[in-house]
Design a protein around this nucleic acid. Structure first.
Lengths: 111, 111
DNA sequence: ATTTAATGACGTAAAAATACGTCAAATATA
DNA sequence: TATATTTGACGTATTTTTACGTCATTAAAT
C-alpha cells in the first residue's frame, strides 16, 4: 500500500528526483567529491576516506553506479571507480533548468 | 543498528544532502515547480495538481517545509504555501559549488 | 601451491520513507 | 447555532534505506 506512484510524474522530473536521491546522503556526496579530486580513478580504498564500514561504502558506491553517476572498471582484484562525466553534466543541465523555473527573483509572499 | 552516522560528515555536505533528499521525490519537485509558477502563494489545493492523496501531498509539503525550502502562512482555515526564495538561492549556491568541485572537464578514466 | 588482499553477493536488523485513512480542531458559511 | 470546509495530527501497512557482518570468489604475492 505504499509504493511507486512515481511513474505518475513527468519523466524528467522522475529522472531528476532519482539523481537527487543518489546525492541525498553525505557519504555519497563525499564519494563524488573524492572521485573528482583524485583525478586518477580510485579503487575501493575510498572506504578509508569515508567514516563508514567497507560494505556500507560499497553499497553507496553501488547506488551511485546504478544512478549512472559513477563507473567501475575492474582490473585484477581491484575495481577502479570514477565519475561518469556525461551523466554529471546532464544532471548539471537538468539542475540548471530546475533552478530556472524555480528561482526567479520576484516570487511569492511578503518578500 | 542502521542510522544517522550522518553527523560524521562535513556540515555543508550534510546540509546539501538534506536538501537533495527534500528534492528526491518527483511529487516534491512538482510542488516546487507549481509554487514557482503560480506566483501568488498557493493553498493546499496543490493536492489537485498532484496525482496523490491529500494527506500524502500534505506530508510532502511538510517535508519541504522542514527542509526550509517552502513556507506556510496560515490565514483562516487555509494555509498558503510559497517557496522560501532565500533557501532556494542558498541551495543554488551550494549546488554551484558542488558542480564546481565535481564537474571539471578533464576528469577520470578513458574520456 | 598456499596465503593474502580486494571485492561483490547475500542476509539482516533497525530506521526512515511512502501512501493513505481517520479524526479532531479551527474557521467560514448558511 | 448548525453545517460545511480546510487542515494538521495521528496511526498504520508496506517498502526502501542504512549500516554492517559473513561468505565466496578472484587475483595477486609468497
Amino acid at each position: 500500500m505504499a509504493f511507486a506512484k512515481k511513474e505518475l510524474f513527468d519523466a524528467e522530473m522522475q529522472e531528476c528526483a532519482d539523481l537527487y536521491k543518489a546525492l541525498s546522503h553525505p557519504a555519497r556526496l563525499a564519494i563524488m567529491k573524492y572521485l573528482a579530486e583524485t583525478k586518477t580513478c580510485i579503487t575501493g580504498d575510498i572506504s578509508e576516506e569515508i567514516p563508514l564500514g567497507r560494505t556500507t561504502v560499497n553499497q553507496h558506491l553501488a547506488e551511485l553506479k546504478s544512478a549512472g553517476l559513477i563507473q567501475g572498471n575492474i582490473e585484477g582484484v581491484k575495481t577502479y571507480y570514477c565519475l561518469d562525466i556525461m551523466k554529471v553534466k546532464k544532471l548539471k543541465e537538468m539542475t540548471g533548468r530546475f533552478f530556472g523555473t524555480v528561482c526567479c527573483d520576484d516570487n511569492c509572499c511578503e518578500n
